[in-house]
Design a binder for these strands. Structure first.
Lengths: 201, 201
DNA sequence: TACTTTAAATTACACTGGTTAGTGTAAGAT
DNA sequence: ATCTTACACTAACCAGTGTAATTTAAAGTA
């Protein structure tokens, strides 16, 4: 028996891409499999050959969201840079996620999926908990180095994320990107606020 | 000509209640008008007599959400109470919104509606902007009274909301209510954080 | 108070027109 | 031999309408 297998990943990708675009534009429920096929320049049958039902498509979109959301580099402590600069750079890095309109759209779709499929949200929470240790570690190192005074790094990290997300994550999800000027102003302010409590001087 | 008009508000309410419950349980798209009628112990025709299409139901649900979200009393400056106590009480008041599971469900539905119908989100943003002046006013009064040092009350208010929502609004929307112990711990922490920058001593 | 009248509100139910997830198949492409 | 396509098809669901019958309660009557 000779097995012949062909590489069909390109087709699969184009279907998934088309599906994500359509989900972003119309939402999951209102996107039909026929539309996805049409946009992927494919036949509906091929769509079903790759993803045997519609749920699998949103699952894959979700996985891609997770990958994108956390692949951006995490914060690493650098004794040679000021605390303000390190926090500011970190915020800038994370900000890019909601500046790209496709990524933003994918987040919106995913957020709705979380709300209607709580089991997806659980997976995301587990994943993000495992990832967000980066900031906690940074806070500990900065404290050991005498540059910060943080008793409870987990709590401090949560405060930082709240301050960040309250301007740079949730508002863009709902109303669209933040204007750069206002963004810079708020970033400076919340870093000041953070350091007023956790700074060492 | 004698006009007879009957009070049909009870029926209307029961339909809207049933609709909201169903939206919470199944989401807007997946809730059929037949189901709403059944749950309201009414006929589909009566549903349509009160709400001539499905959109009007989500609109009304949204209006009810707005009313619920902002009817809870706003913060008012009281020179006789400590700053910590006033902020803590304010946070407690706002917290009750996400402790009630129906209100939480309604918020989820509304959030999804915002994401898929941006024009609804606009109305909500306008409404909330007009309401959230309460905290700004409080910050100004506390500053005039020498109890706080706030240069930019709008920015400070935004920081406060970010800190609050980062624990007491968004996480409950996604994963469910916050455990009381953790909530108290974080509330104390974020008030400390806020006062480290804006407190007058 | 009790009763009748009457228009408004509600119901049951059938029906239309449209959409959509998913399947089967045979022919064609790589 | 495997992947892909075109296309026809099913079975279900659903928003919204039309209508005639039935129930309800406000207003008029005794």
């Amino acid at each position: 028996m000779v097995r012949k297998k062909r590489d069909t990943s390109a087709k699969r990708e184009s279907i998934l891409d088309a599906a994500i675009d359509a989900f972003i534009e119309f939402g999951f429920e209102k996107t039909s499999m026929d539309l996805i096929a049409e946009r992927a320049n494919s036949s509906k049958r091929t769509v079903y050959n790759h993803f045997s039902n519609k749920e699998l498509l949103i699952e894959e979109a979700f996985n891609r969201f997770l990958r994108g959301a956390f692949e951006s580099k995490n914060i690493e402590y650098d004794p040679g840079k000021s605390i303000e600069e390190q926090l500011s750079d970190f915020a800038d890095t994370k900000m890019t996620l909601t500046e790209d309109s496709r990524q933003l759209g994918l987040m919106r779709v995913t957020l709705c999926a979380f709300i209607t499929h709580p089991q997806m949200a659980e997976r995301a929470v587990l994943f993000s908990d495992s990832q967000e240790d980066g900031l906690v570690k940074w806070l500990k190192e900065a404290t050991l180095d005498g540059r910060l005074k943080v008793d409870n790094p987990e709590l401090a990290a949560e405060s930082f994320w709240s301050l960040f997300a309250g301007t740079f994550f949730w508002p863009p999800i709902i109303r669209g990107p933040v204007e750069r000027e206002k963004g810079e102003e708020f970033k400076a302010e919340f870093i000041q606020l953070f350091l007023a409590r956790y700074g060492s001087e």
